[in-house]
Amino acid sequence: MTRLQLRYLAHARSGDKGNTANVGLIALEPGYYPILVREVTRARVARHFKGMVSAVERFELPNLNALNFLLHDALDGGGTISLKTDAQGKVYSTALLRMEIPVPAALARRLRPARAR
């Protein structure tokens, strides 16, 4: 096993609901979805965003090969109150794609060169 950034396995979009950001994490290939389900756990995402959010919820959408994460208290008050550049949580999506998860070394070797393409 080796560690691979989620950007090679998934794409994502995020938005807001009050002071909560959501990140929809979508597998780039259906075959990657079980890896996401297994490795991108609620607890790991909470650790990834430690100090930036208060709590994390996770929901599964196997029909879309997607996971949905709710990141509570992620927006510094949210909406119009927040002073953040990203007051609406638009780029929490790619912040999650920075996360590294363990994957088989062969898969990582196959996907990493995508960076150069």
């Binding site: 794409h11 979009r13 609901k17 959501n22 929809g24 979508i26 929901f59 029909n63 879309l64």
Partner: peptide, 29 residues
């Protein structure tokens, strides 16, 4: 992919997308 990204935008609990007209279950799409 373009439709999926929009589907997950501003999503809460996907089984229960609540509007005044009813509740949609996004896990059935």
């Amino acid at each position: 992919p373009s439709v999926t990204e929009q589907l997950v935008y501003e999503m809460g609990d996907p089984r229960s997308y609540i509007t005044p007209d009813g509740i949609a279950d996004f896990t059935t799409i």
